[in-house]
Design a binder for these strands. Structure first.
Lengths: 219, 219
DNA sequence: GCAGAACCGTACCGTACGGTACGCAAAAGG
DNA sequence: CCTTTTGCGTACCGTACGGTACGGTTCTGC
């Protein structure tokens, strides 16, 4: 499912290839490795073309974010009837996907770039990153928990607050730690289980066993 | 209470004043505003002195982190006997303090600096920031929840996991959003209440009312 | 096959950074 | 009072970046 074809200026295949090289340079060497000269050399294009296509350096960075976001479309199937087990499975799948996305090389590099650029007054890059990269995954989770509520499996008044609770339980401070250079989790699935168990204990309509809270050491 | 006087080379008053100016520049204009020439001009010192005192630019950044960390010592009183209400109060105080620290100008600027510097292989700055800035607040929270467990008010097997749960409930994705330039919460206290309520519902030994979970819209 | 656009490679320009060197004033110390 | 140290202000150097200009080459439309 393509979202809003006329949303943003899409780029030619050649330009997409250049943007791919730009992402590669950024991932490998950080922001300082992403120079116009270096990109032109790596992508076998001229600096003049870069400025013709993307305007200036900030335009290039914005194009990189849009390009990356265009690659991570989230499917919104789930027309099926929800059961408690199914809801738990979907929540855990969401949690694992979220952890995997946040730990991805490109995601971390782009977030580092935007954060390094930001000051206390919001940078353009930060806004772009939040809107393009986050809206998709936010919508998926919101639709899921909303569906859970309509099926009588979840209870909450504020869907936004409930989603933030879920997000916090899944991610905790892991994202910032990874942005700072720390390795990351050994087992995303286990963390997903724990987080979803806690979330269902807080907002589920069926009571959860203590096991699901990670209180037992056996899991 | 001074922690480990011989921990790190402390700086002379003059040097501390220079570091203060460096933090001011960093907060106001981001990393690009923190140049050796600019700092020398702002602090009325010579570039030569900067290099004599701090070695090179990275040494200066490390010194800034150490200097800032030396200002936020956390008190560890709490010899008193814990009750359920007292535990909740202390947890909420911790949550408010945590949110306030994370939203601070200097904290955000230093985190942005370290994150902008980092690559997938941990940067020195990131490690420094996590160890100096985080250890204090981590210890405070760990001591608190450990005390809660010993008093029979909390139940969990893994104190570390429980602390990460608390942290996630308090902060969620707020830290990253602020790092990206978003404004921040209007009401830290309310968020603290919600998070602690959820935490106690998960790990407390006394059952919580639905009100405490933020399920009711009235709060 | 030809005109025009698109594009590549390279050279170039101005600027600003990190880091060093030097001259001189002010404090420290005996 | 003289010497030594410390540090300020400035000038300087090499480098590397963002951005522009230009000649030559490939692609495109007619």
């Amino acid at each position: 499912m393509r979202a809003d074809a006329a949303d943003m200026p899409e780029f030619s295949p050649r330009q997409n290839a250049v943007l791919e090289q730009a992402l590669r340079l950024l991932v490998q060497g950080g922001e300082k490795a992403l120079t116009t000269s270096g990109l032109a050399r790596a992508a076998n294009c001229s600096k003049e073309s870069l400025y013709k296509w993307f305007g200036d350096r900030e335009g290039l960075l914005a194009a990189m974010i849009a390009h990356q976001a265009s690659k991570v479309r989230t499917f919104e199937r789930s027309g099926e009837r929800l059961t408690a087990d199914l809801l738990r499975d979907h929540l855990e799948l969401f949690a694992r996907d979220l952890l995997e996305v946040l730990a991805g090389d490109v995601s971390l590099a782009l977030n580092r770039l935007a954060i390094g650029q930001a000051t206390r007054e919001g940078s353009k890059l930060g806004k772009l990153l939040l809107e393009h990269g986050r809206r998709q995954i936010d919508r998926r989770a919101m639709a899921l928990i909303d569906q859970g509520k309509r099926a009588g499996l979840l209870r909450f008044d504020n869907a936004d607050a409930a989603y933030h609770t879920l997000y916090g339980l899944i991610v905790s401070d892991l994202h910032v730690r990874m942005l700072l250079g720390e390795p990351g989790l050994k087992d995303n699935a286990r963390q997903a289980e724990r987080a979803v168990g806690a979330f269902l204990s807080l907002h589920g309509t069926q009571k959860q066993s203590a096991d699901a809270l990670g209180v037992s050491a056996g899991r």
